[in-house]
Amino acid sequence: MDAETPNTTQFVKLVSAEGSEFYIDRNVAVSASKTLRTMLEGQFREAKDNVIRLPEISNYILERILQYLYYQTKYSNSTGRVPEFPIEPEIALELLIASKYLDC
């Protein structure tokens, strides 16, 4: 990356416990998760690298969380019909812990 390239990319990358990579829209990340916003807008290494490691969140949970971030972004100001966001009972606890950590 040369010096002229701005550090702010349109997307950011999240890395799960298993090392899988999820690319999400930066605006969705900062508007739907306070934790991600703090990481991406503060003086953290994450803000420079555009990569956030989440070693405590497994693939399946992270994918569901990210679906939720997009769902929240899409429907937060919506006055129309909001579809349900289904959560399988067997992941409810893990999802709750992860969403608490990400503050979303």
């Binding site: 990579e21 679906q67 899409k74 429907y75």
Partner: peptide, 22 residues
């Protein structure tokens, strides 16, 4: 910022990568 209601996203997968593309 929020996505306009008519906006959607697709999940594009490759190996261990997933792209959430608005």
């Amino acid at each position: 910022m929020s996505l306009a209601p008519e906006e959607i996203y697709v999940r594009v997968k490759r190996q261990n990568q997933t792209y959430f593309i608005p």
